[in-house]
Protein backbone atom coordinates (compact mmCIF):
# COMPACT_ATOMS: atom_id res chain seq x y z
CA UNK A 1 0.00 0.00 0.00
CA UNK A 2 1.33 3.45 -0.90
CA UNK A 3 2.36 5.68 1.94
CA UNK A 4 2.31 9.33 2.80
CA UNK A 5 5.52 11.20 2.18
CA UNK A 6 6.83 14.41 3.68
CA UNK A 7 8.96 16.84 1.73
CA UNK A 8 11.84 18.28 3.76
CA UNK A 9 13.10 20.68 1.14
CA UNK A 10 11.48 23.85 2.43
CA UNK A 11 9.96 25.05 5.70
CA UNK A 12 6.43 24.22 4.58
CA UNK A 13 7.30 20.54 5.16
CA UNK A 14 4.28 19.41 3.14
CA UNK A 15 2.86 15.99 3.98
CA UNK A 16 1.36 14.36 0.91
CA UNK A 17 -0.93 11.42 0.52
CA UNK A 18 -0.50 9.40 -2.67
CA UNK A 19 -1.52 11.57 -5.60
CA UNK A 20 -1.13 14.85 -3.72
CA UNK A 21 1.34 17.65 -4.39
CA UNK A 22 3.13 20.06 -2.15
CA UNK A 23 2.23 23.71 -1.99
CA UNK A 24 4.86 24.33 -4.70
CA UNK A 25 2.69 22.29 -7.12
CA UNK A 26 5.72 20.57 -8.64
CA UNK A 27 6.61 17.90 -6.07
CA UNK A 28 4.20 15.01 -5.88
CA UNK A 29 3.63 11.77 -4.02
CA UNK A 30 3.46 9.27 -6.86
CA UNK A 31 2.73 5.80 -5.51
CA UNK A 32 4.48 6.48 -2.23
CA UNK A 33 7.54 8.14 -3.76
CA UNK A 34 8.16 11.87 -3.87
CA UNK A 35 8.93 12.92 -7.44
CA UNK A 36 9.80 16.17 -9.15
CA UNK A 37 7.40 16.87 -12.00
CA UNK A 38 9.68 19.51 -13.55
CA UNK A 39 13.12 17.92 -13.80
CA UNK A 40 14.52 18.92 -17.20
CA UNK A 41 11.27 20.72 -18.07
CA UNK A 42 11.93 24.48 -17.95
CA UNK A 43 9.21 26.84 -19.12
CA UNK A 44 11.39 29.94 -19.53
CA UNK A 45 14.87 29.99 -21.08
CA UNK A 46 16.73 33.17 -22.01
CA UNK A 47 20.22 34.59 -22.35
CA UNK A 48 20.35 37.62 -20.05
CA UNK A 49 22.94 40.12 -18.91
CA UNK A 50 23.90 39.23 -15.36
CA UNK A 51 22.83 42.74 -14.36
CA UNK A 52 19.23 41.76 -15.02
CA UNK A 53 19.18 39.28 -12.14
CA UNK A 54 20.20 41.73 -10.56
CA UNK A 55 23.79 40.82 -9.72
CA UNK A 56 25.97 43.94 -9.95
CA UNK A 57 29.15 42.57 -8.38
CA UNK A 58 29.24 39.21 -10.12
CA UNK A 59 31.23 39.17 -13.36
CA UNK A 60 29.69 42.47 -14.56
CA UNK A 61 28.93 42.69 -18.24
CA UNK A 62 28.78 38.93 -18.69
CA UNK A 63 25.90 36.84 -20.01
CA UNK A 64 24.00 34.32 -17.96
CA UNK A 65 22.00 31.43 -19.36
CA UNK A 66 18.75 31.83 -17.42
CA UNK A 67 16.06 29.27 -16.89
CA UNK A 68 13.04 28.46 -14.76
CA UNK A 69 10.46 25.77 -14.37
CA UNK A 70 6.90 26.33 -13.23
CA UNK A 71 6.11 26.54 -9.54
CA UNK A 72 7.01 28.38 -6.37
CA UNK A 73 6.86 27.63 -2.67
CA UNK A 74 5.66 31.13 -1.82
CA UNK A 75 2.65 32.98 -3.16
CA UNK A 76 3.55 36.65 -3.02
CA UNK A 77 0.60 38.78 -3.92
CA UNK A 78 2.87 41.06 -5.96
CA UNK A 79 4.64 38.30 -7.91
CA UNK A 80 6.07 39.71 -11.12
CA UNK A 81 6.24 36.29 -12.80
CA UNK A 82 3.00 34.84 -11.51
CA UNK A 83 1.96 33.38 -14.86
CA UNK A 84 4.63 30.70 -14.47
CA UNK A 85 5.43 30.74 -10.77
CA UNK A 86 1.84 30.27 -9.65
CA UNK A 87 0.97 27.66 -12.28
CA UNK A 88 1.02 23.91 -12.16
CA UNK A 89 3.63 22.49 -14.54
CA UNK A 90 1.07 20.94 -16.86
CA UNK A 91 -0.47 24.39 -17.39
CA UNK A 92 2.63 25.84 -19.08
CA UNK A 93 4.22 24.22 -22.16
CA UNK A 94 7.74 23.10 -21.20
CA UNK A 95 10.98 22.63 -23.09
CA UNK A 96 12.74 19.29 -22.93
CA UNK A 97 16.12 20.43 -21.64
CA UNK A 98 18.12 18.01 -19.52
CA UNK A 99 21.14 19.33 -17.58
CA UNK A 100 23.59 18.30 -20.32
CA UNK A 101 21.67 20.35 -22.89
CA UNK A 102 21.51 23.37 -20.57
CA UNK A 103 25.27 23.43 -20.16
CA UNK A 104 25.90 22.89 -23.86
CA UNK A 105 23.51 25.68 -24.86
CA UNK A 106 25.02 28.02 -22.27
CA UNK A 107 28.46 27.43 -23.74
CA UNK A 108 27.22 27.89 -27.29
CA UNK A 109 25.57 31.19 -26.30
CA UNK A 110 28.81 32.55 -24.85
CA UNK A 111 27.52 32.65 -21.29
CA UNK A 112 29.87 32.54 -18.34
CA UNK A 113 27.21 31.43 -15.88
CA UNK A 114 23.90 29.67 -15.55
CA UNK A 115 21.18 31.48 -13.64
CA UNK A 116 18.36 29.59 -11.94
CA UNK A 117 15.80 32.35 -11.81
CA UNK A 118 12.43 33.87 -12.80
CA UNK A 119 10.31 31.62 -10.56
CA UNK A 120 11.70 29.93 -7.44
CA UNK A 121 14.64 27.63 -8.23
CA UNK A 122 14.35 25.87 -4.88
CA UNK A 123 11.30 24.02 -6.16
CA UNK A 124 13.33 22.53 -9.01
CA UNK A 125 16.12 21.66 -6.62
CA UNK A 126 17.25 18.37 -8.19
CA UNK A 127 17.34 19.83 -11.69
CA UNK A 128 19.28 22.87 -10.48
CA UNK A 129 21.73 20.80 -8.47
CA UNK A 130 22.53 18.36 -11.27
CA UNK A 131 22.90 21.17 -13.78
CA UNK A 132 25.11 23.16 -11.41
CA UNK A 133 27.44 20.19 -10.87
CA UNK A 134 27.78 19.70 -14.60
CA UNK A 135 28.30 23.41 -15.20
CA UNK A 136 31.18 23.50 -12.73
CA UNK A 137 32.82 20.56 -14.47
CA UNK A 138 32.73 22.63 -17.67
CA UNK A 139 34.02 25.83 -16.09
CA UNK A 140 30.72 27.69 -15.90
CA UNK A 141 29.55 29.53 -12.77
CA UNK A 142 26.16 29.10 -11.13
CA UNK A 143 23.90 31.75 -9.67
CA UNK A 144 20.41 31.54 -8.28
CA UNK A 145 17.79 34.21 -7.79
CA UNK A 146 15.71 33.04 -4.91
CA UNK A 147 13.48 33.97 -2.02
CA UNK A 148 15.67 31.78 0.17
CA UNK A 149 12.75 29.79 1.56
CA UNK A 150 14.61 26.54 2.02
CA UNK A 151 15.70 24.28 4.86
CA UNK A 152 19.31 24.38 5.90
CA UNK A 153 20.26 20.79 4.97
CA UNK A 154 19.41 21.06 1.29
CA UNK A 155 20.75 24.61 1.18
CA UNK A 156 24.16 23.58 2.49
CA UNK A 157 24.34 20.85 -0.14
CA UNK A 158 23.39 23.35 -2.83
CA UNK A 159 25.91 25.94 -1.68
CA UNK A 160 28.74 23.55 -2.56
CA UNK A 161 27.88 24.16 -6.21
CA UNK A 162 26.58 27.73 -6.15
CA UNK A 163 28.81 30.76 -6.81
CA UNK A 164 26.38 33.62 -6.43
CA UNK A 165 22.87 34.40 -5.31
CA UNK A 166 20.47 37.26 -5.26
CA UNK A 167 18.12 36.69 -2.36
CA UNK A 168 14.82 38.50 -2.24
CA UNK A 169 14.44 39.69 1.33
CA UNK A 170 10.88 40.86 1.03
CA UNK A 171 10.68 42.57 4.39
CA UNK A 172 12.29 42.47 7.79
CA UNK A 173 8.84 41.90 9.33
CA UNK A 174 7.52 38.38 9.90
CA UNK A 175 3.89 39.46 9.63
CA UNK A 176 4.58 40.76 6.13
CA UNK A 177 5.89 37.35 5.11
CA UNK A 178 2.87 35.64 6.62
CA UNK A 179 0.23 37.95 5.21
CA UNK A 180 1.64 38.95 1.82
CA UNK A 181 3.92 36.06 0.86
CA UNK A 182 2.53 33.06 2.77
CA UNK A 183 5.86 32.23 4.34
CA UNK A 184 7.92 33.12 7.37
CA UNK A 185 10.84 35.44 7.83
CA UNK A 186 13.27 33.43 9.97
CA UNK A 187 14.09 30.69 7.43
CA UNK A 188 15.03 33.38 4.92
CA UNK A 189 17.37 35.13 7.34
CA UNK A 190 18.92 31.77 8.22
CA UNK A 191 19.40 30.99 4.54
CA UNK A 192 21.17 34.30 3.93
CA UNK A 193 23.61 33.61 6.74
CA UNK A 194 24.26 30.07 5.52
CA UNK A 195 25.04 31.29 2.01
CA UNK A 196 27.51 33.88 3.23
CA UNK A 197 29.05 31.34 5.58
CA UNK A 198 29.59 28.99 2.62
CA UNK A 199 31.28 31.69 0.56
CA UNK A 200 28.46 32.19 -1.92
CA UNK A 201 28.54 35.75 -3.27
CA UNK A 202 25.26 37.22 -2.02
CA UNK A 203 23.32 40.29 -3.09
CA UNK A 204 19.97 41.20 -1.57
CA UNK A 205 16.88 42.62 -3.27
CA UNK A 206 14.00 44.30 -1.49
CA UNK A 207 10.89 45.07 -3.52
CA UNK A 208 9.53 48.28 -2.03
CA UNK A 209 5.73 48.17 -2.03
CA UNK A 210 3.92 51.42 -1.20
CA UNK A 211 2.29 51.38 2.25
CA UNK A 212 3.14 47.73 2.89
CA UNK A 213 6.89 47.65 3.51
CA UNK A 214 8.14 51.15 2.72
CA UNK A 215 8.20 52.60 6.23
CA UNK A 216 11.56 54.20 6.96
CA UNK A 217 11.85 52.23 10.19
CA UNK A 218 11.40 48.93 8.32
CA UNK A 219 13.94 49.85 5.65
CA UNK A 220 16.38 50.97 8.33
CA UNK A 221 15.95 47.73 10.28
CA UNK A 222 16.39 45.68 7.12
CA UNK A 223 19.59 47.55 6.23
CA UNK A 224 20.92 47.20 9.75
CA UNK A 225 20.24 43.46 9.77
CA UNK A 226 22.25 43.06 6.57
CA UNK A 227 25.07 45.16 8.00
CA UNK A 228 25.20 43.25 11.28
CA UNK A 229 24.75 39.73 9.91
CA UNK A 230 26.07 39.69 6.35
CA UNK A 231 28.49 42.59 6.22
CA UNK A 232 28.81 46.09 4.86
CA UNK A 233 29.88 44.94 1.39
CA UNK A 234 26.77 42.91 0.59
CA UNK A 235 24.99 44.87 -2.14
CA UNK A 236 21.38 45.81 -1.50
CA UNK A 237 18.98 46.52 -4.36
CA UNK A 238 15.78 48.45 -3.71
CA UNK A 239 13.47 47.44 -6.52
CA UNK A 240 10.45 49.30 -7.83
CA UNK A 241 7.05 47.66 -7.47
CA UNK A 242 4.50 47.71 -10.26
CA UNK A 243 0.90 46.66 -9.62
CA UNK A 244 0.29 43.12 -10.82
CA UNK A 245 -1.17 39.74 -9.93
CA UNK A 246 -3.16 40.16 -6.71
CA UNK A 247 -1.78 43.49 -5.68
CA UNK A 248 -3.26 45.84 -8.21
CA UNK A 249 -4.65 48.33 -5.75
CA UNK A 250 -1.26 49.91 -5.03
CA UNK A 251 0.50 52.46 -7.22
CA UNK A 252 4.01 51.92 -8.59
CA UNK A 253 6.67 52.78 -6.05
CA UNK A 254 7.51 56.48 -6.34
CA UNK A 255 11.09 56.96 -7.44
CA UNK A 256 11.49 59.37 -4.53
CA UNK A 257 10.70 56.50 -2.13
CA UNK A 258 13.43 54.37 -3.70
CA UNK A 259 15.93 57.19 -3.43
CA UNK A 260 15.00 57.74 0.20
CA UNK A 261 15.37 54.01 0.90
CA UNK A 262 18.82 54.09 -0.65
CA UNK A 263 19.85 57.05 1.47
CA UNK A 264 18.61 55.27 4.57
CA UNK A 265 20.62 52.13 3.80
CA UNK A 266 23.74 54.18 3.07
CA UNK A 267 23.27 56.03 6.35
CA UNK A 268 23.17 52.71 8.14
CA UNK A 269 26.58 51.88 6.74
CA UNK A 270 26.07 49.65 3.72
CA UNK A 271 28.64 50.31 1.01
CA UNK A 272 26.70 49.35 -2.09
CA UNK A 273 23.03 50.26 -2.36
CA UNK A 274 21.25 50.32 -5.70
CA UNK A 275 17.89 51.28 -7.09
CA UNK A 276 16.35 48.89 -9.60
CA UNK A 277 13.43 48.36 -11.95
CA UNK A 278 13.58 52.03 -12.84
CA UNK A 279 15.55 53.99 -15.42
CA UNK A 280 17.70 56.35 -13.42
CA UNK A 281 21.38 57.06 -13.36
CA UNK A 282 21.36 57.72 -9.65
CA UNK A 283 21.67 54.49 -7.75
CA UNK A 284 22.76 52.27 -10.61
CA UNK A 285 26.52 52.87 -10.56
CA UNK A 286 29.06 51.17 -8.33
CA UNK A 287 31.19 53.57 -6.36
CA UNK A 288 34.34 53.03 -4.34
CA UNK A 289 33.55 52.95 -0.62
CA UNK A 290 36.97 54.45 0.02
CA UNK A 291 37.07 57.55 -2.17
CA UNK A 292 33.59 57.70 -3.70
CA UNK A 293 34.81 57.52 -7.31
CA UNK A 294 32.54 55.77 -9.80
CA UNK A 295 33.90 52.30 -10.50
CA UNK A 296 31.23 50.70 -12.69
CA UNK A 297 28.95 52.86 -14.80
CA UNK A 298 25.70 51.33 -16.02
CA UNK A 299 22.96 52.29 -18.42
CA UNK A 300 20.04 49.99 -17.80
CA UNK A 301 21.47 46.47 -17.86
CA UNK A 302 24.52 47.54 -19.84
CA UNK A 303 27.93 48.17 -18.31
CA UNK A 304 29.35 51.15 -20.16
CA UNK A 305 32.52 51.54 -18.10
CA UNK A 306 34.28 49.35 -15.56
CA UNK A 307 37.37 50.79 -13.90
CA UNK A 308 37.99 48.06 -11.34
CA UNK A 309 41.54 46.71 -11.60
CA UNK A 310 42.75 43.68 -9.70
CA UNK A 311 39.56 43.86 -7.63
CA UNK A 312 40.49 47.33 -6.42
CA UNK A 313 39.80 51.00 -6.98
CA UNK A 314 42.58 52.37 -9.23
CA UNK A 315 42.32 55.74 -7.46
CA UNK A 316 42.77 54.81 -3.80
CA UNK A 317 43.45 51.06 -3.75
CA UNK A 318 40.36 50.15 -1.74
CA UNK A 319 39.19 46.60 -2.38
CA UNK A 320 35.81 46.41 -4.12
CA UNK A 321 34.15 43.20 -2.99
CA UNK A 322 32.64 40.98 -5.65
CA UNK A 323 33.31 38.20 -8.16
CA UNK A 324 35.05 39.90 -11.04
CA UNK A 325 35.94 38.76 -14.52
CA UNK A 326 39.46 37.41 -14.79
CA UNK A 327 40.89 40.66 -16.14
CA UNK A 328 39.41 42.59 -13.19
CA UNK A 329 40.14 40.08 -10.45
CA UNK A 330 43.09 40.04 -8.13
Amino acid sequence: MSKDVQCLLCPHACVMEPGQRGSCRVRMNLDGELVSLVYGRPVAVHVDPIEKKPLYHFRPGSLSYSLATAGCNLACRFCQNWEISQSAPEEVPPYDLPPEAVVEEAENAGCSSIAYTYTEPIVFYEYMLDTAKLAHERGLRNVMITAGYINQGPLRELCEHMDGANVDLKSIRDDYYRQVCYGKLDPVLDALEVMVEHGVWVEVTNLVVPTLNDAEEDLRDLSRWILDNLGEDVPLHFSRFFPTYRLTNKPPTPVSTLRAARETALEEGLNHVYVGNVVTASGSHTTCPGCGETMIEREGYTVVNNRIEDGMCPECGTEIKGVWLDEQAQ
Binding site: K3, D4, V5, Q6, C7, L8, L9, V15, R27, L30, G32, E33, L34, V35, S36, L37, V38, Y39, G40, R41, P89, E90, P93, P94, D96, Y125, E126, Y127, L129, N151, G153, P154
Partner: peptide, 19 residues
Amino acid sequence: LINRGILSDHPAAWTVVRD
Protein backbone atom coordinates in the same frame (compact mmCIF):
# COMPACT_ATOMS: atom_id res chain seq x y z
CA LEU B 1 1.51 13.65 -19.11
CA ILE B 2 4.64 11.91 -17.86
CA ASN B 3 4.59 9.46 -20.76
CA ARG B 4 4.20 12.36 -23.21
CA GLY B 5 7.15 14.18 -21.67
CA ILE B 6 5.13 17.13 -20.36
CA LEU B 7 5.95 16.18 -16.78
CA SER B 8 8.87 14.29 -15.32
CA ASP B 9 8.84 11.71 -12.57
CA HIS B 10 12.37 12.28 -11.39
CA PRO B 11 12.97 11.06 -7.82
CA ALA B 12 13.00 13.99 -5.41
CA ALA B 13 15.56 14.45 -2.69
CA TRP B 14 15.00 15.50 0.91
CA THR B 15 11.96 13.42 1.69
CA VAL B 16 10.81 10.89 4.25
CA VAL B 17 8.09 8.26 4.11
CA ARG B 18 5.67 8.69 6.98
CA ASP B 19 4.69 5.70 9.09
